Amino acid sequence: MTYCVGMVLDRGLVFMSDTRTNAGLDNISTFRKITLWEEPGDRVLTLLSSGNLATTQSVVSLLNERSKSPEDRTPTLLTAPSMFQAANMVADTLREVVARYRQGGLTAETQKFSATMILGGQIGESPPRLFLIYPEGNFIEAGRDTPFFQIGETKYGRPILVRAYDPALSFEQAMKLLIVSFDSTLKANLSVGAPFDYHLYSRDSLKLGPTGRIGVDDPYFNEISLAWGNALKAALDSLPDFERVPDP
């Protein structure tokens, strides 16, 4: 399983993903699930992936290969004129890879080879945009009512995002929010695990922003995890007790 988040802020875009993949409790591995493309001064794109690892790696490899050697001047991620067309390109590639498995006689197992992706970035003078791409190859775009997307194991980390998200958040505040969301997911589901990769893209910069990896031994991560747990306990204790239980 996976947990990834892409978020739209007034300041730009924020991305974070876990790195755990597993095929059972005794077969756990770490793989990077965030991919970055950059043409300084022209475009920056970030892709987060969830689902079958072979599928997501095939999609990223095809996108990379076609960007290096475009055929017949076919647009690639590095030449697409808009984020919409870039999202459509990723969607088509995902659908192509899944269809290849289906044609290979894996119809009954097709669901195991599905994947879901988040693509965000900015091209030229157009504003930053964020898309959620489904296994079927269709996609939706983030907007005012849906300013962030989650993929993978979403339910444990969603409540804090819904309650605390604000488009005016600074990158520092957004990172704190995401760390709480990821910590909540990690504690509730063993299939999600650190380290966590992130990318912070500043609106109109058209260059890669700060990127990094946060491990379970990271001092700030542990400080936030402990403080959040204590804050939840203190908040619960501060609430009025339920007084309608009848006396025995």
Rank of each mutant, 00 (worst) to 15 (best):
K68A: 12
T110H: 10
E109V: 07
R203F: 14
L106R: 12
R73W: 07
F15D: 02
L232P: 02
A99E: 15
K207V: 13
V162Y: 08
L232G: 07
E38M: 03
P127F: 08
L77Q: 00
L208K: 07
I123P: 00
V162N: 10
L48V: 06
P81V: 01
T74H: 12
F242L: 06
L106P: 07
L45I: 00
M89K: 13
R43K: 04
P40A: 01
G124Y: 04
M7V: 02
S17M: 00
A231Q: 12
L161N: 03
D72Q: 01
R203I: 09
S50W: 04
V5Y: 09
A174L: 10
T74Q: 14
V216F: 10
F84Q: 14
L106E: 09
R73A: 12
L53R: 12
M1A: 13
F139V: 12
A188V: 00
D183P: 01
F196T: 04
P159H: 07
M16G: 03
T116W: 10
V192G: 00
M1C: 08
L25P: 14
G215S: 15
L169Q: 08
I118P: 05
Q103T: 14
S238G: 15
V98H: 09
P195M: 02
D72P: 05
P127D: 14
S184P: 03
Y165D: 06
R11P: 04
V192F: 00
Q122Y: 02
S61A: 11
P195N: 01
A174C: 06
R100F: 14
V162W: 09
D218W: 04
L206D: 13
A164E: 12
A99I: 15
R129W: 03
A108P: 08
G229W: 10
S202N: 08
R32D: 15
F171C: 01
A108T: 08
P147K: 10
D10A: 08
P81R: 11
G152E: 03
L190N: 09
E65Q: 15
G120M: 03
S181L: 01
D218M: 05
L190K: 04
L9Q: 00
V97W: 11
A91E: 12
I160Y: 13
D241R: 12
T74Y: 11
S69Y: 15
I151F: 02
T35E: 12
W228E: 14
D145I: 05
L232N: 11
V59P: 06
V245A: 04
